[in-house]
Design a protein around this nucleic acid. Structure first.
Length: 519
DNA sequence: AATCAGGTTGATCTT
DNA sequence: CAAGATCAACCTGAT
């Protein structure tokens, strides 16, 4: 039968490696590529909205080259779909699977509605390298809590699936997208002003959204064969003036770039050459993404401390003065304030810079809950990803995954390793640009004469440090020790085993099921 | 069951 | 200046 089909773009804002879109084109006479601007999913700040709008424009552009169009509708999916199902006589709905709790609840509602309208629903997994649920199954229903464990699990699953090419004119030759003159009025991509964003006050866009830009950026980096082969994340710099890493994260987050396409391009570059390995390699970075996605699916209340069974319960302070000083780059520690300024201005900071400011906010200095930091990153990050944001905040606050809480980043020493002169600080905090290198990481120690010569008096033109790092970090280590002492003992296996009863052996049927799933 | 090795990316001092 | 020891001492997963 010839279907009238909606392909629902959610993440996966691309044509390449889009198996759900390909499934839509099969036996299809009318195709409606749809994006829903969901008011409940307007997560993130204005830069992120600008990125999204760019990605939608690019998608519409690519669809036009295939004689199709993107339909953009504002509203809640569960309210939008019934009307569109009837209006367009829809018989099939395709979408890319999303592991986020909100995405899953949304899809649940929409699937029920589709059934009521007699609409066939097809989804495909293409946002992650693997089927995340399969990884958890392979680990007996529990998410791995270490990277090593994740690595051994994915080894048993084999390499990720190969990406599929974007649809061509040949794929779409029997398919029409009914577009009328009203299209530009009714289904157009809203302007930033329509979205409530005042774009006049915004900085220039450094990382424009969209699949074309994503693929261009991928090509640009994959050409640097030696750089790719020797890439080791811990060796890259958090405070270089230009990003020392690929900055492909905003593109994989929105699905402008397929993680599998990225993976296999890397494999091509590596082929026959000596190269770095996970966890530090670029392949390793994609596996970290997989690691946190798996954790986010397998751990309840993953973006919270309370009710999160693997998260250390810590008596974080409530301190709105400290929190706003951190958020607004007024801590008095130039390295921290420069990073927070870059984050606000550009929507991207290096991973290790995230480590420095996250440690500072939580266990290192300010003793504020990682959930507060998570919210600030939600507002500022272009590459905001629900699972990665929650997972990394837990990691850095030594709440989950990482437990060596006695390793504390110094807001003074850490940046010096890769930027002795403080050029990064001078770029983002120009008030400090005349400070000599030996004082730029701790300007409060500069004699008044030097402060005067630099045209910046600490306490007047730039804040004094809000805490004494050497003092509070020591105190905080002790507070972490107390929090850890209250943790319930590590359960090494099933609760039954803990109680002294034997774990049930798998039945033959269960073993066969597992074997079949592996094929 | 108890023990052990390893853990993407600390800081500081010594050799 | 690179490598190693020390600081204090965590947890997970493997054996």
């Amino acid at each position: 039968m010839a279907h009238s089909c909606i392909h629902w773009f959610r993440k996966g804002l691309r044509l390449h490696d889009n198996p759900a879109l390909m499934a839509a084109l099969r036996d299809c006479k009318e195709l409606y590529p749809l994006y829903i601007l969901d008011p409940n999913y307007t997560y993130g700040g204005k830069k992120r909205i600008r990125f999204l709008m760019g990605a939608l424009k690019d998608l519409d552009c690519s669809l036009q080259k295939l004689n199709s169009r993107l339909f953009v509708v504002r509203g809640k999916p569960e309210e939008v779909f019934p009307e569109l199902f009837s209006k367009w006589n829809i018989t099939k709905l395709t979408y890319e699977y999303d592991t986020e709790p909100y995405g899953r609840s949304c899809v649940g509602k929409v699937t029920t509605l589709a059934q009521e309208h007699g609409v066939e629903v097809i989804y495909k997994i293409s946002h992650t390298l693997y089927d995340i649920d399969r990884i958890i199954e392979e680990n007996n229903g529990k998410p791995p809590l270490t990277y090593n464990r994740l690595q051994s699990l994915v080894k048993t699953l084999g390499p990720p699936k190969k990406p599929i090419p974007a649809p061509t004119m040949e794929d779409i030759k029997d398919v029409k997208t009914p577009c009328f003159e009203q299209h530009n009025k009714k289904y157009k991509i809203p302007s930033l002003e329509d979205m409530g964003v005042d774009s006049t006050s915004m900085e220039e866009e450094q990382f424009p959204g969209g699949e074309q830009e994503a693929l261009r950026r991928l090509d640009e980096h994959m050409k640097m064969t030696a750089w790719v082969c020797s890439f080791e994340k811990p060796q890259t710099s958090p405070n270089s003036l230009r990003p020392s890493t690929t900055v492909l994260s905003p593109y994989t987050t929105f699905g402008c770039l397929s993680a599998r396409t990225f993976w296999w391009r890397l494999s091509e570059v590596y082929r026959g050459k000596k190269h770095s390995d996970p966890p530090v390699s670029l392949h390793g970075q994609l596996l970290w993404r997989e690691f946190f996605y798996t954790a986010s699916v397998g751990i309840p209340n993953f973006n919270k401390m309370e009710g999160n069974p693997v998260c250390t319960q810590v008596d974080w302070d409530t301190n709105s003065d400290y929190l706003s000083a951190w958020k607004e780059a007024r801590t008095g520690f130039p390295f921290i304030d420069a990073i927070m300024t870059q984050l606000r201005m550009e929507g991207w900071i290096h991973h290790l810079a995230r480590h420095a400011v996250a440690c500072f906010l939580t266990r290192g200095d300010l003793w504020i809950s990682w959930e507060e930091g998570q919210k600030v990153f939600e507002e500022f990050l272009l590459d905001l990803d629900w699972a990665l944001n929650a997972g990394n905040w837990q990691w850095l606050s030594a709440s989950t995954f990482f437990h060596q809480y006695f390793r504390v980043y110094s807001p003074i020493a850490f940046g010096k390793k890769t930027d002795k002169n403080g050029d990064y600080i001078k770029k983002y905090l120009p008030i400090l640009k005349k400070f000599p290198p030996n004082y730029i990481y701790e300007p409060w120690k500069a004699p008044l004469s030097i402060q005067q010569a630099a045209g910046c008096i600490v306490g007047k033109d730039y804040p004094r440090p809000i805490v004494q790092h050497e003092v509070v970090s020591k105190k905080n280590i002790q507070r972490m020790k107390v929090a850890y002492a209250k943790r319930s003992p590590h359960i090494t296996d099933s609760p039954e085993k803990k109680k002294g009863t034997k774990r049930k052996a798998p039945t033959v049927v269960e073993m066969l099921m597992k074997k079949n799933r592996r094929q």
